[in-house]
Design a protein around this nucleic acid. Structure first.
Lengths: 191, 191
DNA sequence: AAAATCATGTAATTTGTTACATGATTAG
DNA sequence: CTAATCATGTAACAAATTACATGATTTT
């Protein structure tokens, strides 16, 4: 039921439409919980049925109407209660690591490419995070309580990301060695 | 289809039964891909049907028979090919971070408890990883190519874990401050 | 008129979880 | 004989992904 609560968390201070939620999930909250617009729309219907969200249609100039959702009192209560539920840890799943278990001279350069792509994507994210941190969370001690929690999540993203960059560099170095080694072997074979 | 390939990866050098695979997933490979025994058994049937795995029944002394699976030539080919498929990044999902977005004076001590639990669990894992690293991967440069990949995955787990420990400490400190602050407020209210 | 973007949705399928079931063997 | 462990499974359900569909509005 975590998607429901992730959506409600995104709606704590702003009312949003389904598509806006989907976009939000791609940036801030989405580092910790991600969902497609299809999934979000369905969940929004369920939450509205339960009475945890209310909806209203909003006309826009130059764009089709959108349906904007907001938290109800019972929704806020449900969210506050959920925080006390014991969290089941879902172990992260990462295909790339499984692929690394299959490293060979043949696939080393392909895997290096995948690592490089991930590194670049993480750089992009970190740049975003840092901008947010400097803009809104420069002095964590002075933040209101709830924002201190958001700050902690942000810091988790930043430090995890920085660690990942360092790992990528280590991986790329080692993988370059494997590629070089394989070309040496090829030369030796052809000689 | 990543579960299928995770299973095959676990079978690269040892033949294993369903339950043995499930246990293996809890330790080494399982840090990057996890599955219950129910899921594993079903996947094993599919993989055997496809001809990617072969099975044989093994009698054990003092235990019921087990069905042991091993890679076939076509399984190894399929696995080798899969490595070249472009990896779709599944963003990690972590409920705890969503909960932190909902930090309040009421739930700060509960969340601190959850962070402390996670910290301890990570310590346990890191202890395991370090033992493996020192025992088998002390000199990465001298490892055979495939094991260099395993080493990289292991290092990803270790450095990610160490980063997480540091974050936990930061989080616990901040959360302690929130709890202390709330008791001060209570005192002021009651005075 | 066609292509692009915004916005909301349905349906089919795959993947993952939870609950339940069964039998073999050993230890107490 | 009972409880515990090992081992394999089935069924029901929930979560997530992929593919497809529709309509409004704006840009070209």
């Amino acid at each position: 039921m975590a998607l429901a609560h992730a959506i409600m968390t995104a709606l704590i201070d702003n009312d949003l439409s389904g598509l806006e939620l989907a976009r939000d999930f791609e940036s801030s909250l989405g580092s910790f919980w991600n969902a497609s617009h299809q999934q979000i729309y369905q969940e929004l219907h369920k939450l509205a049925d339960k009475g945890w969200l209310n909806k209203r249609e909003v006309s826009q100039s130059g764009k089709p109407n959108k349906i904007v959702y907001g938290m109800t009192k019972s929704g806020r209560d449900a969210l506050a209660g959920w925080v006390f539920d014991t969290t089941k840890t879902r172990p992260a799943k990462d295909e790339l690591m499984i692929k690394l278990y299959n490293l060979s001279e043949d696939n080393a350069s392909h895997l290096a490419g995948e690592v490089a792509d991930r590194r670049q994507e993480m750089m992009r994210l970190l740049y975003l995070y840092e901008k947010i941190r400097i803009r809104h969370y420069d002095d964590p001690a002075s933040l209101p309580t709830r924002h201190k929690g958001v700050y902690l999540a942000l810091m988790a993203g930043i430090s995890q990301g920085e660690q990942f960059l360092a790992w990528c560099d280590q991986a790329l170095e080692l993988l370059a060695g494997v590629e070089a080694g394989s070309s040496v072997k090829r030369k030796a074979k052809n000689a």
